[in-house]
Design a protein around this nucleic acid. Structure first.
Length: 194
DNA sequence: GTACTGATACTCT
DNA sequence: GAGTATCAGTACT
């Protein structure tokens, strides 16, 4: 992809919750064939390693979670509930586990392309959930391990966008519920859950 | 509008 | 063999 202002690898090599928070308002870019989809990131969750019971990395590296211990700025995609793919971005320096789950997006460009991938009655339902957005952006296991600073899946810096951020408990987990590791943009229509 | 349920296959124990 | 970082559909209020 030939786009300026992509966030560099060093952006992701930091504390996971800080990255999760700062990704809000940034643009997720997705190239499919000749088409480009642009979406604003409006909801994220932070997952750490050893001290985070809800994280796939909490019990050390496994074949699935090993990528969370690797270099930052990589996509970590996995299949969940036998039905959905979920998209994460690996954080922290190589050797330390961490990832940010992308939970919801606000469609900005390429909306007709998304409609082809995921026909919905209302635009609001297009990308307001982690399983929904991977369907709309055609993200699957093929994207697992891809860097997000120069491929067909990338994240663009947006300097002027400083949204008001709300933190909340994470969704859909059984352990680590007490931690406020979910972040979303206040009053945004596309956030999956208030 | 909210509440409940089934689908479905992969990962780790 | 159990559990799962979800969603869509149905049945209600």
């Amino acid at each position: 992809m030939n786009v300026k202002d992509l966030l560099p690898e060093s952006f992701y090599a930091r504390d996971t919750a800080a990255v999760a928070r700062e990704l809000l308002g940034k643009y997720l870019l997705r190239a499919i064939g000749g088409d480009l989809i642009t979406c604003r990131i409006v909801e994220t969750e932070a997952y750490y390693g050893q001290n985070d019971a809800a994280s796939h990395a909490s019990r050390g590296p496994t074949p699935r979670s090993a990528i969370m211990f690797g270099p930052p700025g990589r996509a970590y995609v996995y299949f969940n509930y036998g039905v959905h793919y979920l998209l994460n971005i690996v954080t922290e320096p190589a050797g330390t586990a961490g990832a940010v789950l992308i939970r919801a997006l606000e469609p900005v460009g390429g909306i007709e392309v998304m409609r082809r991938n995921r026909p919905v009655s209302e635009l609001k339902k297009m990308t307001n959930g982690p399983g929904k957005l991977t369907q709309a952006l055609k993200i699957s296991l093929r994207e697992n391990g891809h860097a997000v600073f120069g491929g067909p899946l990338a994240i663009q810096n947006v300097e002027h966008d400083k949204p008001e951020i709300v933190s909340a408990r994470r969704v859909g987990i059984s352990a680590g519920k007490e931690l406020f590791y979910r972040f979303y943009i206040k009053d945004n229509l596309f956030v999956s859950k208030k």
